[in-house]
Computed example of a mutant assay.
Amino acid sequence: MADEELNRHQRAAETKRRRTREAIISGALDLYGELERGDFTRDEIAEASGVGTATLHKNFGSKYEVLRLAYERLLSPLVDPIVKGREQGIYNPPDAVDELIRYIYTVARVSQKRRALTVSMIRSYFEAELTFETLGSPIAPAIECILQFNPFYLQVDDGLRYARTLLLDLQHERRDNVAMCVSRTLCQQVVRVNADGFNWSASDAWYERLERIEAAVDTSGIVDECGK
């Protein structure tokens, strides 16, 4: 077989593989939808995606891999503008503390809205017995970008550590206002540890900042855009 023909077959096979993976990821997102509780087997995910179980196993090594990529797709409208903008040198938030709060609260709101998918992803991660650095990988890159701006100073692996904390808090917190509770606690922790010289003397100003950003996120429509 000529090299040109071989390359053509290779490209066709790669295109088919990408389309199959996309179908499975989209199928998982649709299957979990906006369920608050519930989980699905790999067989059920395969059926919802229109592929056989063997095909799913061939393309994904674990259920966690499928759900992580589905969750990553869900958050892409939040993460991509920050990460890609930083890579291109055009991302420059005017207030990094505001940006951190906005990002973490929005991630928490989207995760709360898609709670079944979020919790199932976390559970499948632990069932797969993967190294802890992997959990939170869809969230961490944007946190790391934000922490590169004043008044923050980035510590090694801070992004993954905070992303992991956010996910585990979302999993275990049961109050109706879970997104608000966990994001406020985490943002305060990040700012206290990583913000150089940030003024904490006026606590009222801090809560006014939180309330202003949360209200802006809730009325922006971005939460509904995620997952479409």
Results as ranks from 00 to 15, higher is better:
residue 14 E to C: 00
residue 28 A to V: 07
residue 93 P to C: 01
residue 121 M to I: 04
residue 6 L to A: 12
residue 98 D to A: 13
residue 27 G to D: 13
residue 115 R to E: 04
residue 126 F to P: 00
residue 137 S to P: 03
residue 24 I to R: 06
residue 185 T to M: 09
residue 137 S to W: 02
residue 108 A to M: 11
residue 129 E to P: 00
residue 90 I to V: 12
residue 16 K to D: 15
residue 55 T to N: 03
residue 9 H to N: 05
residue 25 I to S: 01
residue 215 A to I: 09
residue 209 R to N: 05
residue 53 T to C: 03
residue 183 S to W: 04
residue 30 D to T: 14
residue 158 D to M: 06
residue 218 D to N: 09
residue 68 R to F: 04
residue 169 D to A: 15
residue 98 D to F: 09
residue 127 E to L: 15
residue 169 D to P: 01
residue 206 W to R: 07
residue 203 S to K: 10
residue 80 D to E: 11
residue 227 G to K: 06
residue 46 A to T: 10
residue 166 L to K: 04
residue 176 D to A: 13
residue 185 T to D: 09
residue 131 T to E: 09
residue 125 Y to D: 05
residue 155 Q to F: 03
residue 146 I to L: 14
residue 28 A to I: 06
residue 179 A to G: 15
residue 165 T to V: 15
residue 160 L to T: 15
residue 34 E to V: 06
residue 21 R to G: 09
residue 15 T to P: 00
residue 213 I to N: 02
residue 18 R to E: 04
residue 156 V to F: 03
residue 72 E to Q: 07
residue 217 V to F: 05
residue 58 K to D: 03
residue 148 Q to V: 08
residue 41 T to Q: 10
residue 203 S to T: 12
residue 74 L to N: 01
residue 29 L to F: 00
residue 173 E to R: 08
residue 203 S to L: 15
residue 11 R to F: 11
residue 46 A to S: 12
residue 176 D to G: 10
residue 132 F to I: 08
residue 167 L to W: 04
residue 115 R to A: 05
residue 3 D to T: 03
residue 130 L to Y: 14
residue 189 Q to Y: 02
residue 23 A to P: 01
residue 68 R to T: 05
residue 132 F to W: 12
residue 147 L to M: 12
residue 77 P to L: 01
